[in-house]
Write a protein that binds this DNA or RNA. Structure first.
Lengths: 172, 172
DNA sequence: GCTTATTGCACAGTATGCTGATGATCAGTA
DNA sequence: TACTGATCATCAGCATACTGTGCAATAAGC
């Protein structure tokens, strides 16, 4: 890696040439592949759910009655993005948006029977997708990759506009 | 995959609850933070470049005269995305699009003086961003994370619509 | 030389993500 | 109670990304 550019006239010879040394670039590529794999598996299984929609659906199923802001915090989405995602989930009949009795600003979200059924049927495809994006890694390497990503994410959580937020009053 | 749900009344009780076990979700979060960090550092440095625009600029500087399709393959962008990215780079005067003398379909891309200068001046901010997104990891862990991502990406390269392509005839 | 396949670029349409702003509402305080 | 600041949802606008489509030009096969 040691570049021998001492003899070169141009002052800007040690310019960046290989983006594969940049974690940011690698992150983009990995995510790009992850999304493509998810879409492919989903289509093969005959469903029409994006990764984002899937994550939202899981969160709503796990915490029925939560409002959109809490949902956003739970899965670290931007608040403004949630609106569209929930729109599309509702349009597909997988989720219901109902006015909150406690707060007239808020919408309570809950999963429908169809949503729950979809979540069940889709699980094998999701598993397959997660395996596919880790192919090329051994099981141990896969675990380590996830550990390192979790650690980096935890340290950088507050740096994005949509940090992860623990659910406070999960209406048990 | 053999589900043991015989004894359970609710067939769907082992539902997914923690997305932090899903590599796809972690990938999205890490990338989300990476982009946010990049934007923040760039703004602090007084520049207006997105991560994607930066990557394109680096590639064009490294391979002047390349066409858009080759650029796309070099940094694994989708062909249709490149159009807009180059548009914005050209609009900022960092890049020039000129008709290729060899192929009238193609546009040859080259970096301008302003583009080159920007690339130099921006480098410290880019370095800072890369460090910031890896904060929380030791140096060794950072290296390992990058190694694992590279390995996973190499194995999954062909799975996305925009795989990485080696430059064949880099006009040396 | 003519047909066919491929390639380079662009556009329409959809889905994320983000910044910044607005309207409605809530909660704490003077 | 009236005021103030936060909070929930939404919207407008910009920048990725992707699918699919189409056009023009080139390359390959015959």
């Amino acid at each position: 890696m040691l570049m021998i550019s001492i003899l070169v006239k141009l002052p800007w010879e040690n310019r960046v040439k290989d983006l594969n040394d940049k974690p940011g670039h690698l992150a983009r590529r990995f995510q790009q592949i992850a999304v493509a794999v998810f879409h492919a598996e989903m289509e093969e299984a005959g469903f029409d759910l994006t990764p984002v929609q899937y994550a939202a659906l899981v969160a709503i199923a796990a915490h029925p009655g939560l409002d959109q802001a809490t949902l956003a915090g739970t899965i670290a989405y931007d608040r403004t993005t949630i609106t569209g995602v929930v729109d599309r989930l509702a349009q597909k009949g997988l989720v219901v948006r109902s006015p909150s009795p406690r707060d007239r600003r808020a919408h309570e979200l809950s999963i429908t029977k169809a949503g729950d059924k979809t979540l069940q049927q889709i699980e094998p495809a999701v598993q397959a997708a997660q395996r596919a994006m880790m192919r090329g890694l051994t099981a141990a390497e896969g675990k380590e990759l996830m550990r390192l990503m979790r650690k980096a994410i935890a340290a950088g959580n507050e740096l994005s506009r949509a940090p992860m937020r623990e659910m406070a009053g999960a209406k048990s």
